[in-house]
């Protein structure tokens, strides 16, 4: 037992020593990040968004779900900061609670589509040849699909609900990650150290998942950040077509689309959730854009 711990500790030290250049690199990145205004603004927006989502139950002044017909269609006031909707529900409360749903959608879709895409991409890139050929052709097929139509068909097939919205968006989104991870994996597998590990006797799956996969993650993560905005918009599009989440869940996209018939007389119903979407998507886009600036050595300077 003891020897294992010592061995582990040794390994940890080794690990840190080996990663030193990487850590240095991270420090440099942090510096660049601080000097990239867009990324800063983006991060601040997203942090606010996450904080709101975490503290939503404390912030909300009203029940976001139950309707109160006597208070319907009230314009913004100090009682109802964002006004009330056609069921008399406080829009401010709904937007706040909605942040949790958006966060959940973003998190799950990123996990599923990022995970699936990276896995397939790494497998394709690592094995090459006909495995690569098959996986990439499948990727091409999904890429050529109009993704909203695909998501619509999936959402229709599975029935509208939060889970199904997430599945539909994930099925549509994984291709980009597969392409990225594949390109990365192809580069990495040619590196001498991979050859060395193979010489030591490591199996394919071990090399693939322990050595190639981790190295593919950073471009995938950057792309994920950029895609997070799109996820909310796709969810909103599905809501517009009546295929979003189950009512009365306060998902922002369906709030915008359900409130759109009130745009002329009661503008606040769809405008505030619309602003919330724009705000968060803007945050992710700023962050993604900034990160790309940082990653792109030509633009550093």
């Amino acid at each position: 037992m003891k020897s294992i711990t010592i061995e582990k500790r040794g390994k940890l030290r080794d690990f840190i020593a080996r990663r030193k250049p990487i850590i240095e690199d991270w420090k440099h990145t942090l510096y660049l990040w601080k000097s990239t205004k867009l990324a800063m603004i983006g991060t601040v927006i997203i942090v606010i968004f996450i904080l709101i989502a975490i503290f939503a139950p404390i912030i909300v002044p009203y029940d976001p779900i139950s309707s109160n017909m006597s208070a319907r269609l009230q314009p913004p006031s100090w009682d109802h900061l964002f006004g009330t909707d056609q069921f008399g529900r406080d829009i401010f409360s709904r937007v706040i609670v909605g942040s949790r749903i958006e966060l959940w959608i973003i998190f799950l879709v990123s996990l599923i589509s990022g995970g699936l895409g990276t896995f397939l991409g790494v497998v394709a890139g690592y094995f090459g040849k006909f495995v690569d050929e098959i996986i990439m052709r499948i990727t091409d097929m999904f890429l050529a699909f109009p993704s909203l139509v695909l998501a619509m068909a999936f959402a229709a097939a599975l029935g509208p609900s939060l889970t199904n919205t997430i599945i539909a968006i994930s099925v549509v989104g994984w291709t980009v990650f597969a392409r990225l991870a594949r390109a990365e994996a192809m580069k990495i597998k040619k590196q001498p150290y991979i050859e060395a590990i193979r010489a030591v006797g490591a199996g394919n799956s071990r090399i693939m998942f322990l050595h190639v996969l981790p190295m593919c993650l950073s471009p995938v993560l950057v792309q994920l950040t950029l895609r997070m905005g799109t996820i909310i918009l796709t969810a909103a599009g599905l809501g517009f077509l009546g295929l979003g989440v189950r009512p009365p869940l306060p998902e922002w996209g369906s709030m915008v689309s359900d409130g759109r018939s009130y745009l002329v007389a009661q503008w606040w119903i769809s405008t505030f959730p619309g602003i919330a979407i724009a705000f968060v998507v803007l945050g992710f886009n700023f962050l993604g854009d900034g990160i790309r600036d940082i990653m792109d050595p030509r633009l550093r300077r």
Binding site: S66, S67, M69, Q86, F87, L241, G242, L243, P247, P248, D258, S261
Partner: peptide
């Protein structure tokens, strides 16, 4: 179904 009127009615009845 997906029409706005029916959705609204469903929400009211749910409550």
């Amino acid at each position: 179904n997906t029409t706005e009127r029916r959705r609204s009615e469903a929400i009211a009845i749910q409550a």
